[in-house]
Computed example of a mutant assay.
Amino acid sequence: MIKIGNIELPEFPLLLAPMEDVSDPPFRKLCKMHGADLMYSEFISSEGLIRDAMKSMKKLDIFDYERPVGIQIFGGDEEAMSLSAKIVEAVNPDLVDINFGCPVKKVVCKGAGAGVLKDIDLMIKLTKAVVNSTHLPVTVKTRLGWDTESINIMEVAERLQEAGVKALTIHARTRAQMYKGEADWNYIHAVKNNPNIEIPIFGNGDIDSAQKAWEYKNKFDCDGIMIGRGAIGYPWIFNEVKHFFKTGELLPEPTITERLEAVRQHAEWSKDWKGERLGLIEMRQHYSNYFRGIPHFKDFRRQFLEVFTLEEMDAVIAEADAFYRNFDFVN
């Protein structure tokens, strides 16, 4: 069993990564249903929370069915991070996570996210500001360093632990890599095997199959794995990993009918959360991911992009289901 503060997780937990415009409550619900053990909100601007910005406040929505769940915040100002931690605590998540890894320019330019990797002293000050402002466990997600010449994850891990962080997720790329190139999990292995490190170390980066999860678990000795892009449009990955760990066998890939059912569930929960029209508009980014690699989906995707009600969606789903039931995938 893995513990983060008082939170008890399975022996080798699978975490859903906090992803902007992806890890919202409807998607988290789907991932929970398919085996995710711990999930995080989309990352939330500390400045946005203090200003009571509607978009930021909406991201605080969490539900009992998804617990344990953490809310992730980012920012580069101690006072703002402290105040936002208090705001987050009021909605009663299971933990608070700090984003020191987002490589996006608009975040980095504000001295937040991966931008803090250039100033470890500031990172620790920001972390302590959050730790001292909440009774909740505080965790951190970060990267190896700013670039290959300044990889400082070993120092970062030790100092974050000393600052009171209860778990650390390491995306095994530098900020300069963004999401390109191969994630180097050797650094995760080194941090985990540092005798000074006692907190759980979770690995993140490039996990897109059950076989790779098994390989990385055994090769790099981390305490759990966080899955991000591998889960987009494919929430089944969590149960596939667990089944492979338990049996050594691969579950069959979801059928077209199962993919369509997942889209329908995702859309319905999106409607419940944001209203029918907006919920279905925001679903548009997901369709191609659910049907990646499926032949002749282009025409159905166009139809999905034109729906504004669940009734219209059901008609497209019925047509797609009928088409693929009669489709010869072999020839």
Rank of each mutant, 00 (worst) to 15 (best):
E253W: 07
H171L: 13
E66Y: 10
H286I: 01
E42Y: 10
P195R: 02
F300V: 11
S270R: 15
P200M: 04
I207F: 05
K110V: 09
D21K: 15
H286R: 06
A190Y: 13
M154F: 13
A114C: 11
S46N: 09
A320I: 04
S150P: 11
D77M: 02
I87A: 11
P93F: 11
H135S: 13
R229L: 01
F329K: 04
V241Q: 04
E276H: 03
C109A: 15
D321I: 07
F297V: 05
P68V: 00
E268V: 05
G181E: 01
Q303S: 12
A129E: 10
L280Q: 09
I188E: 00
G115A: 09
Y287H: 00
Q161N: 08
A17M: 10
I225G: 04
A36D: 02
E253G: 04
P295L: 06
H135M: 14
A322M: 07
L30M: 09
Q211M: 02
V130H: 08
T169K: 04
I201R: 01
D121H: 11
H135R: 14
A167V: 04
Y290M: 04
M54K: 13
G279R: 05
T142G: 01
V96N: 10
K242H: 08
E249N: 09
G101W: 09
A36E: 05
E268K: 06
E66P: 08
E149Y: 14
V108H: 08
A318N: 15
E66G: 01
F329P: 00
A172F: 12
T247A: 03
L280D: 02
G5D: 07
A36C: 05
A315R: 15
I87N: 12
K180I: 12
N289C: 09
A172Q: 10
S288W: 06
R264I: 09
I225F: 12
A53Y: 09
D299H: 11
I62D: 10
I188C: 08
K166D: 07
I87Y: 14
N331H: 11
F238W: 02
L49Q: 08
F323D: 02
V241L: 04
V69M: 08
R173I: 12
D208P: 10
L117G: 05
R264W: 13
I281C: 02
E249L: 15
E319P: 02
S209W: 06
A114P: 01
